[in-house]
Structure formats: structure tokens, C-alpha cells
Design a protein around this nucleic acid. Structure first.
Lengths: 368, 368
DNA sequence: CATTGGCACTCTCGTTGTTAGAGTGCTAAC
DNA sequence: GTTAGCACTCTAACAACGAGAGTGCCAATG
């Protein structure tokens, strides 16, 4: 199920790409770039004019016909211009695109935004999504960096005003969640003894020693060996770990969906509904994680290359961030196949390395 | 600036509403309900057929003409049916609508979803937005409940594996944020003495005693009276309080934007762009808070009643939740003025009381 | 022999004209 | 006060049509 997430795009074009003549390459590149820009099928005449090709339109026409035979271009109807096919985009991305690193200016601008405010980790994700969206004028998707399996890091029981306790659990990957422990449930767990501050502190210390580095099922296996009070708290800890495993996919930050909606190909809005549903509800992104982390770097999935039917008219440009063995997250953009790849790819790449830096340098650090 | 957020809708219709004849009331109600349902201007003929009116279409026509003279209906063009004006919707909402409490079944269904999973508070908001969106088929907006001004509740310094400290701050309203304190910055604050666990615990205890209930500026005023170490931590606390004041508006949960996009009046998508921008970036919701909390209950803002130009073609149905003196949040739906008010209003009302219950009963409580 | 100008052909798109139908407003009759 | 009838208006849908863009092919050309 993980394989097949994206069809293996290295194989198919390997023949055609290398066999292209220089002229075909130039024409294909021009067609893609013009169509990405204007969203209208591009004809031979317009091409020679706009790109100053040193040949006549007739020559371009024959080159286009060849490219169409190779399956790189297609024809909406007889007398319309050409449009790149998914394979055409693929070829473009793979070997025709003039990709450069992100402008120094853009890099600084992005860095500046991150340093501007003291942010919590969720706000980083939000900001990353916002930057991606505005910078590429596509929809952006960012998932939090989480360990594939949450592990116990450190537990602290915080006293609240109303004598309830707040359990603050730091995961092995540095994420933090909290949950309130109501007084009644504590008392129920240890009938008789009233469970004072001292007992709780002792229990917390025990758990920090016993549970270090354990995952949810491992914690559960320890339950029997603990005092009733500690076991009760450990049970809650196990629940928190399990939930973190489960909800990882829930917390997805998106931004800039309107950008895509304004694209002529999605004017109706109906087409995007399916895409958004897949994005939000299913395990779509989760399936993507192993694919991306296996390759590392930026992965581009174009139109029908995506096995999910709803995604056949959009492209994804995604990258993992974080380290495979600790926290791992996903970020990228979603747009029409007619996407400005030369802009999107460096932006996603840069943001992924930046997020990498941030989480490795202990992100929530306070540096005043 | 706060007044004028929504024009005072009690004044304008007070004359006309009461002066309506019974027939005019019936016709207006039918027009609104039919138009809400079908989104096409409704004619006199269709009206008598579909609603079994005991009069002829000619009579309905004259009633419609009267309603148009009163400004409650309008005419897209000469030979089209009638469409309710903003004032027409207002009159409908105010005195024509047959509003009932939410179905018992719906109530249970909603409650069930909330009890289903152990949720963190942010996930409640997400769930609330999701329920609102699907239940009203509009866009839903939910803001977290926050005190207007964050106050110190309780501070705990949690030890991390790498000898850094995590400052966990519980606000007066029960919200929790955390920030990492890097070892270097702690040492810089207290040159010479190495600031061990004991010193930190003492400092935390002092701060918990001295800062209880204080807001950010009040904390700052205390800085001079503290030991260097405690002052350094207190400074961080002050920052955390200030940020909480500032970012309240940032964390807005929305859901179901596609629902609105599918409405024929927003087919283009371009119209909604302005609306979404206002919703996300500006202090729009913040301005709404005092208005809503002043009235309590559900507030309906229809089309041009909203002073914000971008919002002239949408209606809001919003309610506050929480208590005014502690945590206060907002939730509601946004849709075309052609909105199913009789559905939206009870749903928003019910969800607001439900969220009220949840945060008053110490929401994150663990009840196993 | 690759390139190009020329040309016939095709298809879309915007314009125009026409018509059917829905809806109104008015008036005269009940 | 209500209603049937009727003339009038406006839109939506459709067909006809020409302009324009683009193609594919072929013969001429360097």
C-alpha cells in the first residue's frame, strides 16, 4: 500500500527524455512555461513570438506533433494549441526546468518572519503553511513533526488552584501535551489514602525513572509492577501516548486554499471538494510519510501519478522534515498540475531545511 | 469602533415589522424559505402552488409589491421573481421564523461526538467547528476561549533530558502554554552561581506566591523585587502572558469553507477571498467579541448590517461561550445571506451552551 | 534534407437574432 | 378586497454565423 502511493516516475520517461532533440526540449519547455503562466493552450505562432525562437511556426508545429506522439503534449481539440500532459510536466520537472535555489532575498524574508515573533511550535507550522501558500500561490499543507511512535520523555504533575492536578507529559521528541487529573478520579484509584502532594511527587519520580523511553504498549505492561496511585497515573500516560500516535494526522495545517480555487481549472469549486476531503479525513498524508522519507528531498507527484483518484488533477510538491528516527513531519504545496514548479520546488526545499534547523535547535528555546 | 460593528438592527425594522398584515407575513416567510431552499427568485405562481396559499397569484403579487415598497423584497429585474433583501431576512429572523430548539436526536448525536474521544481543548474547538460546518452546511468559525487579559495561574519548571528547563505556565483561565528555557540563558542571568534544581524550585515557589492572579504588566512591575534568577524567569512569564494576549485571534479554527464555495452565489470563488482574508488576518473577530458578549445569546448579522465591506454578501450567526470575567470565546457560522437560519441559529445556540458546559466542568478532565 | 511559406481545413468563441416562458403590473369585473 | 385576464418585459436557451486561431500537409527552397 505504501509502494504505489506514487507511481515510479523514474522508469517511464527514461526512454523519451534522453531521446529528445534539442529543439524538442526547447519547445516542450516553452510550452510548459507558457501554459503555466497563462492557462491557455499555446499555439505554434504564439510560441515563436513570445520566446523568440529562431525557427518558423511550421517547424515548431512539427516539433509539437512529435512531442504529442511521445505523449508529452496533448490537444484539447483539433484547432486549439497544445497543453502539457502529466508526462510532459514530469519531463519538464526532471530535466528541462531551470531550477535555482531560492533567492537570497526570499530566504532572508522567510527567516525574518520566523525570527520575528516568539512562536510556539504550532505557530511555526501555521507560519510555514502561510509562507508556503503566499510564496507559491498554491495551497500549503504542513503536518507537525512527530515521532512515528510516541515515547515517554518526562512527566510532571502540576498543582492547580482547585486542587486538581495537571499532568504534563513531554514526549521523547520534545512535544508536550497536558491533561487534567480530576481529584475524584485520583481518590477513586487509591481508596483510603488521600494522595497528597508528597505521594504524587513520589509517584511522578518513580514513573520518570521507570518509563523513560517507553512507548504506549510498553507502559501498559509495566502497570502491574506499580503502586495503585502510580499505576493510575501511568494508565493516563499510556492513554496520552496512544492518542498522540493516533491524532498525528488530525493536526494538519493548511493555508491558501483560495489560491487554488481562483485557478481557472478549479473555478467551480466542486472539483476541489474531493481533494480537500482526501486531504483532511483520510490517512492520505500518513501514507505519504514513508514514501517521502525514503527518498528524502523534494518529491513531486503530478496528476495521475497519484494513485488516489481524487488527486488526478492536482500536483503535490512535498518534502519531509525532521529526522527519520525521531520526529518526522511533512510539508508541501498542492496546486493544479499547471503549477509553477520552478518556484514551488525550491521553496518547499528551503522551508523543509529551515524547519529541520528549527526543530533540531530545540525550537521552543527562549533566546533573549 | 466596537459600536457600529453591526448596525443596530433593532431600530430600522421596528416600524415595518409590526405593520405587516398577516398575509404579508405569510408571503414574506414563504419567499424567504423558498429562496433559501432553491436559490432562484421566486414568483407569485410558484408560491401559491408550493405553499398552498388560499389566494390567487394576483393577490400574492400585490402583497409582494407592498413588501417591495417596504424594502423587504427586491427584484433582480422586471420579469424575475422576488428575492428577500437584507431587511427581509432580518424581519424573517426576528419575527417570522419558526425556530425550535435543536432536535433531541441531533443534540444526542453532537454530545456523543464530544464524549467519544479523549480530546485536548484544541481538538474540542476543531470538533465544534466540524460539527457546526456539517450540521449547517456553512463555514464554521470557532475561537478558543481565552481571558481577555491573560493572568498568572501557576508555574512549573519541568526538567528535560538535556538539562534544559521547560516552563509550564497555567493561566488563570486554565489554558496552558509551555516554553523551553535554555541552560545558557539561565546561566547568563545568574553569573557565578550555577542555578541548580534546588534554586530553580525555590524560584518557582516564590513566583507562584508572588505572581498569583497578575497580568503581564503587573508581573513586570514586580521584576525589581525578585532575585536575579527569579526575575529572569518572571520576565519569561511576562512574555508568555503578553503573547497570549496577542495571539488570541491567531488561533481560529475554521471548517466547511467548501460548503459555502458550493453555493451558487459564490461559485467564482473570488468573492469569498475577501471574506476569508478578513476572517483570518484582521482583528475582525476580536471586534466581534464585545458585541456578542454584551448581548449574550445568538447574534445574527445579515449582509450589509456588517460594517465590513467584504462581508456585505454573507451572514454571520455567532454566539459567545464561556463566562465574561474568565475565559471567553466565539463560535458560529458564516454563509450566504441566503442561509438556513432556522437551522443555524439553534445549532449555534446549542453548541455554545455545550462548550460552556465543557469549559466550566474543567474540560480536560480525565474521567475513566 | 531539414526548413519554411502557403493553403485548406477545423474547431472554438463571441455576436446576433429569435423564441418560449416566466413573471409582472394593471384593470375591469366579481 | 379579490381575482381573472391581458399586455408587456425580460431572461434563458438555442441556432446561425463569421472571425480568428491553430493545425496538418505539401511543395518549394536554401
Amino acid at each position: 500500500m505504501v509502494e504505489g502511493m506514487a507511481r515510479d516516475e523514474e522508469r517511464a520517461p527514461s526512454r523519451s527524455v534522453l531521446d529528445l532533440t534539442e529543439r524538442q526540449r526547447i519547445v516542450l519547455r516553452a510550452v510548459v512555461e507558457d501554459y503555466v503562466l497563462n492557462a491557455i493552450p499555446v499555439g505554434s505562432q504564439a510560441l515563436v513570438e513570445r520566446y523568440g525562437l529562431p525557427v518558423s511556426s511550421a517547424t515548431v508545429r512539427s516539433a509539437m506533433a512529435e512531442l504529442e506522439a511521445l505523449g508529452l503534449l496533448s490537444h484539447p481539440h483539433t484547432s486549439a494549441g497544445r497543453v502539457p500532459s502529466d508526462l510532459g510536466y514530469r519531463t519538464y520537472v526532471e530535466s528541462l526546468m531551470r531550477e535555482s535555489a531560492l533567492d537570497r532575498a526570499d530566504q532572508l524574508m522567510i527567516r525574518h518572519q520566523f525570527s520575528q515573533v516568539q512562536l510556539t511550535s504550532n505557530e511555526w507550522l501555521r507560519l510555514a503553511a502561510s509562507i508556503l501558500a503566499t510564496s507559491t500561490r498554491s495551497a500549503a499543507v504542513v503536518t507537525p513533526a512527530r515521532a512515528r511512535r510516541a515515547r515517554f520523555g518526562h512527566l510532571q504533575l502540576v498543582e492547580l488552584a482547585d486542587r486538581a492536578r495537571l499532568a504534563v507529559l513531554v514526549f521523547g521528541d520534545g512535544n508536550v501535551v497536558q491533561r487534567r487529573l480530576h481529584r475524584t478520579s485520583l481518590e477513586k484509584a487509591t481508596p483510603g489514602e488521600p494522595a497528597g502532594q508528597a505521594e504524587l511527587d513520589t509517584a511522578a519520580a518513580t514513573l520518570n525513572r521507570e518509563l523513560a523511553g517507553l512507548s504506549a504498549p510498553q507502559v501498559r505492561r509495566k502497570l502491574g509492577k506499580l503502586t495503585p496511585l502510580a499505576a493510575h497515573v501511568a494508565e493516563v500516560v499510556a492513554q496520552m501516548l496512544e492518542e498522540s500516535d493516533a491524532v498525528a494526522v488530525e493536526e494538519v495545517f493548511t493555508d491558501g486554499i483560495v489560491n487554488v480555487l481562483e485557478q481557472p481549472e478549479f473555478a467551480g469549486g466542486a472539483k476541489l471538494r474531493g481533494v480537500l476531503e482526501v486531504l483532511q479525513r483520510s490517512d492520505f498524508l500518513e501514507q505519504l510519510v514513508p514514501v517521502l522519507s525514503r527518498r528524502g528531498g523534494v518529491t513531486v507527484i503530478i496528476g495521475h501519478e497519484n494513485v488516489n483518484d481524487a488527486m488526478h488533477e492536482v500536483s503535490l510538491v512535498f518534502a519531509p522534515y525532521g529526522t527519520e528516527d525521531s520526529a518526522l513531519g511533512l510539508l508541501g504545496v498542492l496546486g493544479p498540475t499547471r503549477m509553477p514548479y520552478p518556484r514551488a520546488i525550491p521553496t518547499v526545499r528551503y522551508l523543509s531545511t529551515l524547519m529541520n534547523e528549527l526543530i533540531t535547535n530545540h525550537p521552543t528555546e527562549n533566546h533573549d
